[in-house]
Write a protein that binds this DNA or RNA. Structure first.
Lengths: 152, 152
DNA sequence: TATTGTTATACTCTATAACTATA
DNA sequence: TATAGTTATAGAGTATAACAATA
């Protein structure tokens, strides 16, 4: 149950605001690297030396197989991934990062997960408090949403 | 300067994670209401009794005037807004929420800004700490980004 | 016969350029 | 001549349905 509606409302507004600003930040990074959101999602979900079939990727994206075919075409044009035949089942095409794709993944992650000075500069005790409280809130939110999807 | 890189990194990861989950939550609410992100942005930026010209809306959206014409067409089809001629300058068309649009705005805001139980249930002192630290981080981030855009 | 991935096609959202009607 | 909005057109991204190759 709620202890102080106004306080919780303030915090929630701030969390939404920070979410929005991080979306903006991400899209600016992508623009600088010449990538689309689709490129990013694919590059981040592929790991060097771990090719994944088109169907598996599509499932992870929550999109259609034909959409993934289209996206992989775009990534291949850019030289970031390549299709590899599967030894045991010749119907499946595994998507693998090229060396260039691996370099782009590193560059992207470095920019994406770089801690802004505004965060890094906070005092350790403040950092710790926010981290712990946010972690708590997130874990409770995860419980709720999993309950919601289970009920669905 | 950074005090404890690992701590800051943890927090930043949590903030990104929470941002992503809030984007997902928002898109699920929109789906339930049968709205697109464009509908949402327009409805939230219009206030009952305060019609706004197409050009002004486009500027606020950071999009083209023709794109806004298209979006207003979609909103009019749904009966959520209407175009009104301007008395003093007959070139401008002011976009106003219809009564149905006002109802949809209220429904959307109620769902969108509703504080999840996972947040509302936190102890007041925790709420206060997170709010203050997040507010501090956000205001510093705002300074940095305005400096960045000024340099651009 | 069922499954993986592709192709053909269509729809949404976005932008640019040409146009209209006002100013 | 300049401005507010529209229309014509094109491109990116998404989905559905029909199809090919393989299981």
């Amino acid at each position: 149950m709620a202890h102080d509606p106004a306080l919780a409302q303030d915090l929630w507004r701030l969390m939404m605001q920070s979410a929005m600003s991080q979306v903006g930040r991400a899209s600016s990074i992508l623009q600088q690297l010449g990538l689309t959101p689709g490129h990013m999602k694919a590059i981040l979900s592929l790991r060097p030396g771990e090719p994944r079939p088109i169907g598996t990727l599509a499932q992870g994206f929550g999109c259609d197989a034909s959409t993934m075919t289209w996206l992989v075409d775009r990534l291949e044009e850019r030289g970031l991934v390549e299709r590899r035949p599967d030894k045991t089942d010749r119907r499946v095409k595994a998507v693998a990062l090229t060396p260039q794709g691996v370099r782009m993944k590193k560059k992207l992650e470095a920019r994406m997960f770089e801690v802004p000075e505004s965060i890094a500069g906070l005092k350790p005790d403040v950092l710790e408090q926010v981290r712990d409280a946010l972690a708590l809130a997130m874990s409770r939110a995860a419980e709720n949403s999993s309950m919601a999807s289970a009920a669905h």
